[in-house]
Design a protein around this nucleic acid. Structure first.
Length: 278
DNA sequence: GGCCAGGTGCGTA
DNA sequence: TACGCACCTGGC
């Protein structure tokens, strides 16, 4: 059930939105823990999210919830039927159970593109830092923070101007991506069409420098809503080799592959921490 | 000080 | 196709 008041919206259990899992499972980098919840900015709006799996509270204007956050948090999709597809696969069942409460965010395409370009060969705190500095330097103020910059705000910048980001060798990739989107060479709105073949959109994304298969799949999944995309990074590679020696076929789950990827990723990161020698 | 971190692009076989 | 290696930067 969704209960909306003028400045907050409460979600009950059936939506299974666990803020901690959702914001720490590795899909996004701009929601920061604060005052017992998470503070974030997207779509030029700010929001504070608190609660747990049984009750989630979104502090935002009601009109923002309806016009933006509802879709951003993917609240109109039932995950139960998709999660049930894991039945019969013990590892997938365990991962799905562990990740219960994760919602796959429908992030903005350009922000997702930049974020996952930055993520390559990088660690999470540093990724978050670079993305945050990107917003602070080139985004517009929103409430107590900054919106992620629009493509045109980055496209005309020089590499020197990007130096404060300390993005390293990824800086020219960011510029190229911004220029491609701002100029229309890469039309992210067009590529959002769910009827386009996955490999066609992926191929288009991979024409950008610094965008290979993995980054492209992250953009497809997190920015373009393509749940048939199944990003495989080094962690996934190791896990799949260990638990699926005969191979894992994401094509078996055209509606849920991306969700399962996130469950597996979150689960194996947990396992590796649990087994880490301290 | 060396190594590694949620990849990619390029050269070589 | 498969592999090795460099690439900025920051933390351990």
């Amino acid at each position: 059930m969704i209960i909306t008041t003028p400045n907050k919206t409460v979600l009950t259990e059936q939506h299974a939105f666990d803020p901690t899992k959702t914001f720490t499972c590795g899909q996004c980098f701009r929601f920061q823990p604060k005052q017992g919840g998470f503070f974030g900015i997207a779509g030029g709006r700010e929001i504070f999210v608190s609660g747990d799996k049984t009750e989630t509270v979104l502090f935002c204007p009601a009109e923002d919830f309806e016009s933006f956050w509802r879709e951003y948090f993917d609240l109109d999709r039932s995950y139960d039927a998709l999660r049930a597809l894991a039945a019969g696969d013990p590892f997938l069942e365990a991962a799905t159970e562990f990740g219960d409460g994760i919602r796959l965010l429908r992030q903005e395409p350009f922000e997702a593109l930049c974020t996952f370009i930055i993520s390559q060969c990088n660690n999470i705190p540093r990724i978050a830092g670079i993305v945050e500095r990107l917003a602070q330097h080139f985004g517009t103020p929103i409430g107590s923070g900054f919106a992620f910059p629009a493509p045109h705000a980055l496209a005309s910048l020089s590499l020197e101007a990007l130096a404060p980001l300390r993005a390293g060798y990824r800086a020219p990739y960011l510029l190229a991506a911004a220029q491609a989107v701002a100029s229309g060479t890469l039309d992210l709105a067009f590529l959002s069409d769910p009827d386009l073949p996955l490999d066609e959109v992926r191929k288009k994304l991979m024409t950008l420098p610094g965008v290979g298969r993995k980054v492209a799949d992250c953009v497809l999944l997190f920015g373009l809503g393509r749940w048939d995309a199944f990003p495989v990074d080094v962690w996934m590679q190791r896990a799949l080799a260990q638990y699926y020696p005969a191979g894992f076929k994401p094509e078996r789950f055209p509606q849920a592959a991306g969700l399962f990827q996130q469950y597996i990723f979150y689960y194996i990161r947990h396992l590796s921490k649990a087994h880490a020698v301290t």
